[in-house]
Design a protein around this nucleic acid. Structure first.
Lengths: 335, 335
DNA sequence: CTGTTAGCGCGTTCAT
DNA sequence: ATGAACGCGCTAACAG
């Protein structure tokens, strides 16, 4: 790589000090219109590109934030990322998007390299164990947790919290199924490490508790993917012949469950009703379209960044929490 | 942000020079096992996190690459990104993932900030006009273009090229439709700025040329989304009553076309056959499942990064090109 | 309005 | 095996 043009080059060429050049490229005032224009011309002519690296070293902040998600190719996270990136960009920040691939080791590694890159803050969709997580948070300059609510007793460091009311969502979906007369309702719970999964499970069990008594064998964990849902639903349906409905961790799992029903010759919704969660675009496109619970994904991401930037630019002491309400969407898979 | 621990702190604490500390954290040799261990302990105890910023400034490379795509929430790009990120991570590189939102202005802005951040190289899914693009490429340290083939006469700077044989793919799909007796075949071409779209159009027209003469009114551009496909298909179907098949830019557009058919009371495939492109997971899940052309998305991303890292670490003079072959996948939407 | 000094935290190049 | 001096490119804090 040929040596880059630097402020020194510009300064020499323009016959001014480096500081003046710096003022021009940062649009700071304290420069006469004449010199400003002269310098700017040279900047343009030499195709000067200021080094964000050097600037960061000097200013001690980078204008970048990290976004850590399990998997961008999950439409839920893709939309969250889009919302986050859009807002960050509008505010002049850059986003380092990192996938953990649902691997805690990798999540830790990713967070560490983000720290080394001196991001100004981090938005985390974390699957780390509570103890590990709160330990990680201590060393972070600023952080916002998405869809996760640390237990207060862990000695929670101050973070921003943006989440969906998943307990409410889980309850709402389950209640809908109960209202329609279902009494044996399975639950495909997603990854054990998912906080959302646990919250939805709680809502599910709370709703059940009023009407029927929950049986542990109605519930099983699965990967949050179509394949995970297919495999888990297959087993669940065969193991629980009396099952008439399945509530799924998310829409991908629900699509897997639809496939399992097709495989096993169960009609949806006549034999088994299926409900998903998130209302990703796919949910409305499969046959039958999925009853689900709408999560404002883009807003979740955008709000997380907004909170983070507040914390970066302002005080970072308090814990703030923003809770979005999910919305029941009734379609043909569980009318 | 409290002042960070630096090599100087470690050095003082350990009673060695900064250089020795540097050697330890970079696992370079020239340090006795004893001192190495002593330093390492202090590093761990003080929770030292080396500054990638400072290191980059000193070494003049950052260990990061940029990946510029139109939209991560399009499953095609999400998978490309996943492949790219996975390989990059395995090779010790970081990825800056940036969305252009199909906006050339924004693409330029994004590329510039990536340059300012001194990425070691760039993978571009570019929608820039040829002249602008080749101009941009000149200033880049290393670059790989995805699904794009610059016209040689533009005075092409040396870049890596990774692409799908889209002309072949377009031809293959169209040929399949012709083989099944279709003679009036519409084409929803995607964004006018998409190189892939133009290549697929070329394949489509080549295949047609042998059998029927192509009519411009069979073809129209559209946004590469479900909504774009819905709107465009609605118009196309109404304007061309003799149409019996539609070849779509990608699977999202094809899903939109399916919806348009439902709306207008056309049965698929009996009244109108629909074919997509890419074979995203969604393609197999809609009703009827889509006939499409499989693009190895993950591999496309991974291969682009592989090529880029070669160029970063080795010579950057030659133009290399890797072409993947798409594969026809026949499903019920166009049997 | 403009320039000077002094780092930011690290790696490179030589010495020792 | 270890260290000292210098520089990477830029800006903060002053001076003028």
């Amino acid at each position: 790589m040929a040596r880059n043009v630097t402020v020194a080059d510009i300064a020499r060429e323009a016959g001014v000090s480096m500081m003046t050049v710096s003022r021009v490229i940062n649009q700071a005032d304290g420069v006469s219109a004449a010199t400003r224009q002269r310098v700017q011309q040279i900047v343009d002519r030499l195709n000067y590109s200021p080094s964000a690296i050097a600037r960061s070293l000097a200013t001690r902040h980078t204008g970048t934030i990290g976004l850590v998600v399990p998997d961008v190719s999950n439409p839920f996270f893709a939309d969250v990322a889009r919302g986050a990136e859009h807002l960050a960009y509008a505010e002049g920040y850059h986003v380092f998007l990192c996938n953990t691939e649902e691997d805690p080791q990798r999540e830790l590694a990713v967070i560490h390299s983000l720290e080394e890159n001196r991001v100004d803050g981090l938005v985390l969709f974390s699957r780390l164990a509570p103890g590990v997580l709160s330990n990680v948070l201590k060393h972070l300059p600023a952080a916002v947790l998405l869809n996760r609510r640390p237990t207060p007793q862990t000695g929670l460091p101050p973070v921003g919290l943006v989440r969906l009311n998943d307990t409410g969502g889980g309850q709402m979906v389950t209640q809908h199924l109960l209202n329609r007369g279902h009494r044996v309702i399975g639950f495909l719970a997603g990854p054990a490490a998912s906080y959302s999964g646990r919250a939805r499970a709680k809502g599910y069990q709370q709703a059940l508790a009023d009407i029927v008594s929950f049986r542990p064998e109605w519930k099983c964990h699965c990967a949050p993917t179509v394949e995970g849902g297919l495999a888990a639903a297959r087993e669940l349906i065969l193991a629980q012949p009396k099952l008439t409905a399945i509530f799924c961790f998310n829409d991908l799992v629900a699509v897997g469950a639809l496939q399992a029903c097709t495989e096993l010759g169960r009609r949806v919704p006549q034999d088994i009703a299926i409900a998903g969660y998130d209302d990703i675009p796919l949910a409305a496109l499969v046959t039958p379209p999925l009853t689900t619970c709408r999560a404002p994904r883009y807003e979740l991401g955008a709000q997380a960044v907004r909170l983070l930037l507040n914390r970066i630019e302002g005080c970072t002491e308090a814990c703030e929490e923003v809770v979005f309400q999910p919305q029941l969407v009734i379609r043909a898979s569980a009318p």
